[in-house]
Design a protein around this nucleic acid. Structure first.
Lengths: 190, 190
DNA sequence: TGATATTCTCTACAGTTGTAGAGTTTTTTG
DNA sequence: CAAAAAACTCTACAACTGTAGAGAATATCA
């Protein structure tokens, strides 16, 4: 596949994610995608003729973006740890994890939309699992940092907590999550 | 308004909630509602000619159902408290709150759909707030029970935790919430 | 370069949607 | 019981959807 072709596919999948966040699943139409991506009408229909595979690819793309952010988080941790010490680095990770629904609002809301859609459509089940796994990675990383090698980390509880307060914040139904808020809970469950 | 008219409106709004849970916002169409409600084609169009007011009314109806369940929860608490003591009654409330996404799956998922929709559509903002308030009532009640009159209850944290793990469970992305799981966190934040 | 293959854009179409209102049935009223 | 009103059901229609494929533009290659 040529690089320009790949670039256009990425433009389209990015547009799908923006649309999922701004207009929900019902706002994701081929014509809306073309407009949001700044491409001629028919482009998204050409690259993704059927809608279901388009949503599958968009989910994979979103999962890859989440994984990438997690990789960068871990690199950032290593850099800060070497320069300012482990405590500062742990605080950095905590801050990033807690504010992710803010700094990556579209990715977070698109994941919520796709997770809900995946629970209804069997053909999206697999990519739904993929999204959850990708979203839990940074939380698992953070838990590993502060758990001193414990094996029974309550990842479900911590991930649920962060998803829940993030969702309420992202939908305007709750205050911005803080590290202090999370720290209490994380310390308690470890 | 006659009682049969009110009964049909309720049939329709109940059908909307079921459709929101089973097919999402995009699955809520006038024709689908008529079928789900077991009414002749055109019924939902007659009672709710425009879709936006229909969603507003469905949100109000859902909020009322949540409030009703909360009332019953409080009645149940009082009954158990008088018969088996306060500890048993508190345990009962904890169990009900934690398993609500299971026992009232449709109500929970419909609220998630509507909360997401409300964050995108200004005309749904108010009913979105209404839904959040109704959903938080039982949690606030439970917190009051176990907080010994403290004023600074972390309702946001606890509500976020329950919404988050409930959402992951309801979408098949996490295990069933347990009272033990929640108890640790609640004790910690109080 | 000229021909051929590829890549893309545009148009068309059947199905579905929200919505309006015509037509029918039921209820109320005199 | 007849007539008027109300309640309801059905049909129609413009707008929008997913999708297919015709047509144009671009790239590849002899």
């Amino acid at each position: 596949m040529s690089s320009t072709k790949q670039a256009r596919r990425t433009l389209i999948l990015d547009a799908v994610i923006r649309l999922l966040a701004s207009r929900g699943l019902e706002g994701v139409t081929h014509r809306a995608i073309d407009e949001a991506a700044g491409l001629p009408q028919g482009s998204s229909s050409y690259y993704f003729p059927k809608k279901e595979p388009l949503l599958v690819e968009a989910s994979r793309h979103l999962a890859a973006l989440l994984e990438k952010d997690c990789d960068e988080l871990q690199v950032g941790f290593a850099e800060i740890a070497s320069r300012q010490g482990v405590d500062a680095a742990v605080a950095y990770v905590a801050g990033e994890v807690v504010s992710y629904a803010d700094t990556a609002r579209d990715l977070f809301l698109a994941r919520m939309e796709l997770t809900l859609a995946a629970s209804r459509r069997p053909e999206l089940k697999d990519v739904g699992d993929l999204l959850t796994a990708a979203a839990r990675r940074p939380i698992e990383f953070f838990l590993r940092l502060i758990s001193d090698g414990r094996a029974d980390m309550p990842i479900e509880t911590c991930a649920g907590l962060i998803d829940g307060i993030s969702l309420m914040y992202a939908t305007g139904q709750g205050p911005k999550p803080t590290t202090e808020q999370i720290a209490t809970v994380f310390r308690a469950v470890l």
